[in-house]
């Protein structure tokens, strides 16, 4: 993990300078605005949903945008000719992304607790949010190594939402039969949604949570090991 500290500090500094942190924060505020308009009757349903959308879709987009910035400026490549460990390079980017996910979660959750007296299993929320952000960071990386430009990233993200996120949201709003759940378990999105709902007091079987958590861990590991790592250098160097 040679140079991890320096790299992470660099990542955090750039989150601020490239206004990614600020954008993420403003999006959290938008969620708060919507929650405020929705009012206390439905808050219990929508707080988990908004947290979820933020740490999944927003993560994919922000990670992707960030990587494209860096690719354009060739700094991904420049970092590869320094003595830094490759693992440290990836880790610094993952940790800065986890930070963003956590920040949004804290903002939304705190607001919900203070304004609407929602009760949350805080520790589990943190653990699950980190997991979900991690897997979606890996998905963002994966999209970037496969697409050529930012439009490609948008297209992939939208496609991903239709394929995985919307069915879960429909299911949550009881628009799909309950038998659909077995199929939905293959979606990292659905696994994530179950976890977050659980932290807001919904009944979720413990084995389903465990399975979901395992799934997200394994999926992150597989993407990092078999997709991101082998293709990262090629992506960074490609002009």
């Amino acid at each position: 993990m040679h140079n991890f500290g320096v790299l992470l500090r660099g990542e955090m500094q750039r989150l601020v300078r490239y206004k990614i942190l600020q954008i993420s924060f403003v999006v959290s505020l938008l969620w708060l605005g919507i929650l405020f308009l929705i009012g206390s009757d439905h808050v219990a349903d929508f707080v988990p949903l908004f947290i979820f959308i933020d740490v999944s879709m927003m993560t994919v987009l922000l990670v992707g945008a960030n990587l494209f910035f860096e690719k354009q400026e060739n700094t991904l490549k420049t970092l590869l000719i320094t003595p830094s460990d490759f693992v440290a390079l990836l880790a610094s980017k993952f940790v800065s992304s986890l930070y963003l996910g956590l920040q949004s979660t804290v903002v939304i959750a705190l607001f919900a607790v203070l304004m609407f007296d929602v009760s949350i299993a805080v520790l589990w929320l943190i653990v699950f949010v980190l997991l979900i952000t991690c897997v979606h960071t890996a998905i963002g990386f994966t999209f970037v190594v496969f697409v050529k430009d930012f439009n490609g990233l948008l297209a992939f993200t939208i496609f991903y939402m239709f394929l995985f996120a919307f069915p879960s949201i429909f299911f949550m709003l009881d628009l799909l039969p309950s038998s659909a759940e077995y199929w939905l378990m293959f979606s990292p999105t659905h696994a994530g949604m179950l976890m977050i709902n659980y932290t807001f007091g919904e009944d979720v079987a413990w084995w389903l949570l465990l399975l979901g958590a395992l799934y997200l861990v394994v999926l992150s590991a597989v993407l990092i090991r078999f997709v991101i790592s082998p293709k990262y250098v090629e992506t960074a160097v490609r002009e």
């Binding site: 040679h2 354009q72 400026e73 060739n74 700094t75 490549k77 420049t78 000719i81 320094t82 003595p83 830094s84 460990d85 490759f86």
Partner: peptide, 16 residues
């Protein structure tokens, strides 16, 4: 990667 301690590399722009 300690090899890179020995190297200075100037790529084509941009790089910053």
């Amino acid at each position: 990667n300690a090899y890179y301690e020995d190297l200075g590399v100037g790529f084509e722009l941009p790089v910053h």
